[in-house]
């Protein structure tokens, strides 16, 4: 088998709060291989957000090893980890985090603005390509406030794809959406997965995790379960939804 995209060995993370130490992660090890669609599950306080921050090179582990695409993150400077985020990782957030009053195309172009090796012509082409992948080629010059929540999240996904990352990290990406739209977004992720993208999806909803191919369950900073799951088709789930649920947005619990 090829080298894993993500390789984590005995990862710990300790926060100092005053004189107390909080052990958010207590020794976590797992690998993610190319083309996997992993959900990272856990309740509030289980350490999944801490893990995601470390996976996204926004935070450093207290101890343990972390390799992304065979690069040891531990040894990298701040600027080098910025470059890793820019070239190797695509983030999708719960609250989309699109720049307001900036159209979809420019929002998607944003990561490439921080990449000197991409010309402005190539930047635009790649952004258009990414928007096509998420099915928004007709909405390129729309401002975020002219788009629905689902469409905004699609723009955010396009932004995560535009730098052709080795892994897409999604943080509760369906957390702000109603069931139908959540399923649509999951269907999009499944499509991207089928096209060979590696995706790590953090969620607290088992319902959503069922659409992935592997679930890593965290509790109190430890992995309690890491197993392949029977992947449900989001497209099918979508067609099984009763029609009227369109109009009843479900109140979603947000939990980070």
């Amino acid at each position: 088998m090829a080298d894993p995209i993500l390789k984590i060995e005995n990862l710990t993370r300790v926060f100092k709060v005053g004189s107390e130490s909080v052990h958010a992660l207590k020794g976590i090890s797992f690998d993610v291989f190319k083309g996997e669609f992993v959900s990272i599950m856990g309740t509030s306080g289980s350490g999944k957000s801490t893990l995601l921050n470390i996976l996204g090179c926004l935070d450093r582990p207290t101890s343990g090893e972390y390799y992304i695409d065979n690069i040891a993150i531990k040894d990298l400077s701040k600027n080098e980890s910025s470059i890793i985020r820019n070239r190797k990782i695509g983030f999708v957030f719960q609250s989309y985090n699109l720049l307001s009053r900036t159209n979809a195309l420019e929002n998607v172009e944003l990561p490439l603005l921080y990449n000197n090796t991409v010309s402005s012509k190539e930047r635009k082409e790649r952004a258009i390509e990414a928007l096509k992948q998420v099915g928004l080629e007709n909405r390129m010059d729309h401002m975020p406030n002219q788009l629905s929540g689902g469409q905004q999240q699609r723009v955010a996904i396009a932004r995560a794809l535009v730098n052709d990352p080795v892994i897409v990290l999604a943080d509760e990406a369906t957390g702000n959406l109603d069931t139908r739209t959540s399923y649509e977004i999951m269907s999009l992720f499944q499509k991207l997965h089928s096209e060979g993208k590696t995706i790590a999806f953090v969620t607290h909803e088992p319902d959503i995790a069922n659409f992935t191919s592997r679930t890593i369950m965290l509790r109190d900073g430890r992995i309690i379960k890491d197993e392949a799951v029977q992947t449900k088709s989001a497209q099918e789930a979508l067609s099984n939804l009763p029609v009227e649920s369109d109009d009843i947005p479900e109140e979603k619990r947000t939990d980070n």
């Binding site: 926004l58 910025s82 985090n97 720049l99 944003l110 990561p111 921080y114």
Partner: peptide, 16 residues
């Protein structure tokens, strides 16, 4: 602040 966080997460360096 949130925009700055986003820019950093997609690869903006402190200097940027």
């Amino acid at each position: 602040t949130k925009e700055i966080g986003l820019r950093m997460s997609i690869g903006a360096q402190n200097r940027d």
